[in-house]
Write a protein that binds this DNA or RNA. Structure first.
Lengths: 223, 223
DNA sequence: CCTACCGATCGGTAGG
DNA sequence: CCTACCGATCGGTAGG
């Protein structure tokens, strides 16, 4: 319905030919379509990590990427969906990094080295660059809804599946002396907990941490 | 300033002689002074554990002990103070139980048994009866203010202090082969993480968990 | 992605 | 410990 209140000029007809030529204007304002989504996920990861999901407001996240309070909801339907995006990003990254490890599980002698690679990689994922994502997953998964939680669980299962054959080989070797399934749970606990204390005391490097963990878990013949 | 709006009767004089005789009425309503505080702490522990501090409302807690929404604030100044009370109760209990263990750190041969007692006790505190308190402390300490957090930290230090001589003895024995301080952090992680998975799979008893942990961490000569 | 806003919730309080 | 309530915050939305 056309009313008398419509402003006269700048009709859509005058604007149509402008579209195809040149890049979509981004001279002063840096809006770079998909990059805003990535920026939101990164800012959310950092804030969720530091303050927790519930203590972080969507306004905090918006401000961290210079948006206004309602704008995150243009990219994510709910705050929960943003949380899930953080975790999904973290798990995809962790899975990709782990899949790229040169693990050799064919011969038993390689099992010890394989475990040290897995542990070192896990410390890297937890404590290295871009290390906000996995801790958020570890400590805020209760805030997801059921569907999201199951999706994350599937990724975790895929991640853990690569550890079992290595642990089994070590058990058969006699280098791991605890029940394989309990050992897996205890070892993951030992590693994951480092997210709670590591940033406080940077005394140890990730390699030193890995050595300590291997020395703690693996029974080598060497005194 | 006495104004004309004051209601006339039911002056305080008519009520004074009633007070000293008989117990403070509690026939139908079971209000038992200090026990209400304890009930609040227990209900808060359970809810904070299951849903987290921020996802639990003071109304949830009040309802869990049949109070009305404002009443918890008669017992606790703030929601934070109630959280701290939960943690303080948990740590006092854990410290008392640990202090009652028959640890013998004088002779090196006793160190292995001492560690198994510490670990078994820790699993009990984490996963046994009244096991909501310590997990709340482990996973919600960020929600405390600085003063409360420091108070909890002091209790944690006292708790951990009893482990170091045992670990040192095991290290000197050659039964523990990782740096003592890193070993302590990794071991606590392995144990504390059990609060995340234990309730799900009650497959193992606390004794079985303790055996598995000992087998994982301690290098005995027996194959 | 901004503007302007809503509806509900929630910690906490006054006054008894 | 209840009643009644407040003030602020916060996730989310309509409409451009």
């Amino acid at each position: 319905m056309t009313t008398a209140l419509q402003r006269p000029s700048t009709s859509s007809i005058a604007l149509t030919p402008k579209r195809p030529r040149g890049r979509p204007r981004k001279t002063l304002d840096e809006r770079d379509d998909g990059n805003r989504r990535v920026a939101l996920i990164g800012a959310a990861a950092k804030l969720f990590r530091r303050k927790g999901f519930h203590a972080t407001t969507t306004r905090d996240i918006a401000a961290a990427v210079d948006m206004h309070s309602g704008s995150p909801f243009y990219h994510f339907k709910t705050k929960e969906a943003l949380l899930h995006a953080v975790m999904d990003e973290g798990m995809q990254n962790a899975l990709a990094q782990q899949a790229a490890l040169p693990l050799q599980t064919d011969r038993a002698e390689h099992a010890e080295h394989a475990l040290s690679l897995l542990i070192r990689n896990h410390f890297g994922v937890l404590l290295g660059a871009r290390s906000d994502f996995i801790p958020v997953m570890l400590y805020e998964w209760r805030c997801l809804n059921t569907r999201q939680r199951n999706a994350v669980k599937r990724q975790q299962c895929a991640y853990e599946a690569m550890w079992l054959p290595v642990l089994r080989a070590l058990y058969d070797n006699g280098q791991l002396r605890a029940d394989v399934h309990l050992a897996r749970l205890l070892i993951f606990g030992a590693l994951n907990w480092s997210a709670q204390w590591y940033s406080a005391r940077k005394a140890a490097s990730l390699d030193e941490l890995t050595s300590a963990a291997m020395a703690l878990f693996i029974h080598s013949e060497a005194g």
